[in-house]
């Protein structure tokens, strides 16, 4: 099996992470924020897999499975929050949910 060059894999992971982060920061729609968080999680997972492949260790893939599980749980909580938000405010704009303003 051809070995993926680690540098390229890590650069891809960093790009994905940056994209996700920018998405979280600039989007106001809760659905897009959740999706961006998924992208960041996957970027981290990709970095683990690349590192595992580089040193021929299975730990990287084990970590990725963990991340998948965590991501699934996170999405379920996130979607529940999303539903509550929409039910109370009739909008998906996170900036509308600013009642805890100091």
């Amino acid at each position: 099996m051809p070995v993926l060059p680690m540098e390229q894999g890590l650069i891809l992971a960093a790009l994905l992470f940056a994209l996700g982060l920018v998405g979280v920061l600039v989007r106001r729609n809760v659905i897009f924020i959740l999706m961006s968080i998924e992208i960041m999680l996957n970027a981290a997972g990709l970095a683990f897999v690349v590192a595992g492949s580089r040193w021929a260790q299975e730990d990287g893939q084990v970590m990725f499975v963990f991340i998948l599980a965590v991501a699934a749980a996170e999405v379920s909580v996130g979607l529940a929050l999303l539903l509550q938000l929409y039910r109370r405010l009739q909008t998906l704009d996170v900036d509308a949910a600013s009642k805890m303003r100091g």
């Binding site: 982060l21 979280v24 920061l25 600039v26 106001r28 924020i33 996170v94 900036d95 949910a97 600013s98 009642k99 805890m100 303003r101 100091g102």
Partner: peptide, 15 residues
């Protein structure tokens, strides 16, 4: 003043 209640600002802070 930083307690805006805006999630994206908190996120920026964390980042």
């Amino acid at each position: 003043q930083t307690e805006t209640g805006k999630v994206r600002w908190y996120m920026t802070g964390i980042a």
